[in-house]
Design a protein around this nucleic acid. Structure first.
Lengths: 338, 338
DNA sequence: ACAGGGTATGTTAACGATAACATAAACAGG
DNA sequence: CCTGTTTATGTTATCGTTAACATACCCTGT
């Protein structure tokens, strides 16, 4: 800390090791042809000087950053975290690093992030969802790198797509309930379409109810998305107060579903005896709650893994056209529904 | 996509706008002195060409990356997520971007990450916890940037510290239970010290029990940290089977505490009637569970905010020596304990 | 009218690595 | 023994931006 002189460069290491800077550069990438003796003395010299490789220079000259930019709606969400883990796990062995940002479910924040990220010259960019501001969309379209939209199956994709239909998944859940003989089914979700995937789930609910000619107006709006356990509980309170004859509730996520369940526990409402509750996402809480919650597993880890594999294929020239990979969510029937 | 020619540079923009590249550079940083007319025509030219500012070149020349490197143990953890949110919120307005990586509670993975990150020349680096591999420690010591260790109060810190004593926090919880007259208290945690903060909590538990001359051997090891809800439930099963006279259980986190609670629900064990349960972290589930869980709030958001503020102060030359900021966790007594 | 000071722009060189090309030495095969 | 190939290293120029310095012009006050 006393001597704050400039940090050493490859030239310094080269001088100490008695070789040219180019040889030092080669010694630092494992695949290159440098004799073991030379590499040894270079690494020793680097260690002695406390040399730290400078990626910023390397990035500029080689026009490669080894960054994969990723935007997710929230960093505090087990589902998106799993997608990021899937991505990381596949990309790390290839020396690619994730540049992660979260949008707080805000499209204009997403736009800001995308702009920032593209300036850093990532090798590819992964975004969550298929809806973006016009400017964000334009930036992605013009970016000369692979673009992957995930967690959705947009009709008019920008580039590659790896996801599923949120609407169809919830539709399938309604199908199941109707097949079991229920008719008075409600939906708890956020009160705006900030969370577009949540809005799609509500859309799927309404569409399914209408297919069966059932009342599709039992919709409880529970605050600004993403709604929390607490908001789920409050919404359930309102539902029990205003539509007490409801037979089943589908919640926009497992978190709100669990909150709803706790409200039933507080009020002594028997689940599933008097009311069924289902969620979305297959969070850990859904499996362990008492009763365990019926939910939908969208395979978030697989979304991340497939996305990473696709990116690697594109980089290797193995993938030519634009991919559109549909993940099939799985309906998990548990004790909370019958 | 048809024309894949090289992307335009400032020189191209300059040519089209009829100015020098330097003026383009100035036009792209808001604070600089460029006439409104010139800036306008430059931005128009940039837009026409689809120019995207190249940070990699800027970073190299200006020796500034505007990156703040941050490593956390897990990306799927509401507590660490809050810390990252606190960091982001304070750093974003200053144009600083977080370079986030997670270690999976693995010190050698942390070492790998730190090395990768330092190569990217961040303006500062934030790590979670005070224990690192010798090499990681050396790299941080030699890094010519501010280093902040968080979520802990290490005795021999590398640089700045913003955190709290996990041991002392749990000690305080034991104090409370003992004051309420309990003597047979157990601890549920992971079975290795991979999660050093979890291990510190167990240490604090044992120390406190010994202070009161109580049996400090009611320790249930529940798998590799961080332990999940499921593992918490399994551990509670073992506790009820082997030490049925236990009066209270302190769990290493709210997640395992909630898992433990569900096991009691499945077995018909009354909480808090027959057994008290407490957790750590003040996750949302602790507040909404029925009964609500007693826990400890370590103010993860504040840790992030204070850390970011400290970094800004150091960068502004407002902070000279090494900071050591102690956060005081808050004990939250809820229905699950009495 | 002229020194003094700000404002708007230009010129030059450099940040630290490496792609592309060049070369010397070692080696192999007929 | 000589040509052809491989292996290990060196030389040169460059990636795209901006720090540092230079300059031209327009004020303003006395």
């Amino acid at each position: 800390m006393i001597t704050a002189r400039k940090s050493p460069t490859m030239a310094d290491v080269a001088r100490l090791a008695g070789v040219s800077p180019m040889t030092v550069s080669r010694a630092f990438k494992t695949d290159s042809s440098v004799s073991e003796a030379t590499r040894g003395s270079i690494l020793r010299a680097a260690d002695e000087l406390g040399y730290v490789f400078d990626s910023t220079a390397s990035n500029l000259r080689s026009q490669k950053t080894d960054f994969i930019a990723v935007t997710i709606p929230s960093i505090n969400n087990a589902n998106f975290a799993e997608t990021v883990r899937g991505l990381t796990e596949v990309l790390k062995p290839r020396g690619l690093q994730i540049l992660l940002g979260y949008t707080d479910y805000d499209m204009s924040e997403e736009e800001r992030l995308i702009e920032q990220f593209l300036r850093r010259r990532p090798e590819a960019i992964v975004v969550t969802g298929g809806r973006h501001t016009p400017r964000a969309r334009r930036m992605l379209e013009k970016a000369a790198i692979p673009v992957v939209e995930t967690w959705d199956l947009p009709e008019d994709p920008i580039g590659h797509v790896i996801g599923f239909s949120n609407a169809a998944a919830v539709h399938g859940m309604v199908d199941h309930f109707v097949a079991r003989g229920l008719t008075r089914i409600a939906f708890i979700g956020g009160d705006t379409s900030r969370d577009t995937r949540g809005a799609d789930r509500r859309t799927g609910f309404i569409a399914a109810m209408q297919v069966y000619g059932l009342d599709a107006t039992r919709l409880i709006a529970a605050g600004s998305p993403p709604i929390s356990m607490r908001e789920g509980a409050k919404a359930m309170g309102r539902l029990l107060d205003t539509l007490p004859d409801t037979q089943a509730v589908i919640c926009v996520s497992d978190l709100s579903a669990f909150g709803a369940l706790t409200e039933c526990q507080r009020r002594g409402v028997d689940v599933p005896g008097r009311l069924w509750i289902a969620g979305f996402g297959d969070y850990e809480i859904a499996e362990i709650a008492v009763p365990a919650l019926t939910t939908i597993n969208p395979f978030p880890r697989a979304i991340g893994e497939r996305t990473a594999e696709l990116i690697l294929d594109v980089m290797d020239g193995q993938q030519n056209g634009l991919a559109r990979i549909a993940i099939s969510p799985e309906l998990l029937i548990r004790q909370s529904t019958g």
